[in-house]
């Protein structure tokens, strides 16, 4: 799966889970401000990444910088996919 496909699927998931947000969901928009407002949402996206892409995140992965925007989430997925 290439990077743009991963980004597309993450974007679809976010739009479904967070309908009608103020900001337009681009690859660079800061997700920590408006989207991931609490830990429930972080848990949801992680479980989605695990089930959709078959990647298993470890403790060090689950930190703010990896969830900053769609680009960084996709990068994390890709890093794991190439390892696993």
């Amino acid at each position: 799966m290439d990077n743009s496909e991963i980004k597309k699927q993450i974007k679809e998931f976010l739009l479904e889970e967070f309908p009608d947000q103020e900001a337009e969901l681009t690859d660079e928009v800061d997700l920590l401000d408006n989207w991931f407002v609490d830990s429930v949402r972080i848990v949801e996206i992680i479980l989605f990444m695990e089930s959709r892409f078959g990647v298993y995140l470890n403790r060090a992965d689950i930190q703010g910088s990896n969830f900053q925007n769609i680009d960084s989430i996709a990068e994390l997925v890709q890093k794991h996919m190439s390892q696993e």
Binding site: F36, D38, S39, V40, I42, V43, L57, N58, R59, A60, D61, I62, Q63, G64, F67
Partner: peptide, 28 residues
């Protein structure tokens, strides 16, 4: 608490012995 991976690191590094959390934190 927003990024629970860092929470576990914190608990390990600081040798925390007692936590009084709401169940959703343990659940996550």
């Amino acid at each position: 608490y927003r990024f629970p991976g860092t929470l576990v690191d914190y608990l390990i590094e600081n040798r925390v012995t007692l936590t009084f959390f709401v169940p959703s934190v343990y659940t996550h």
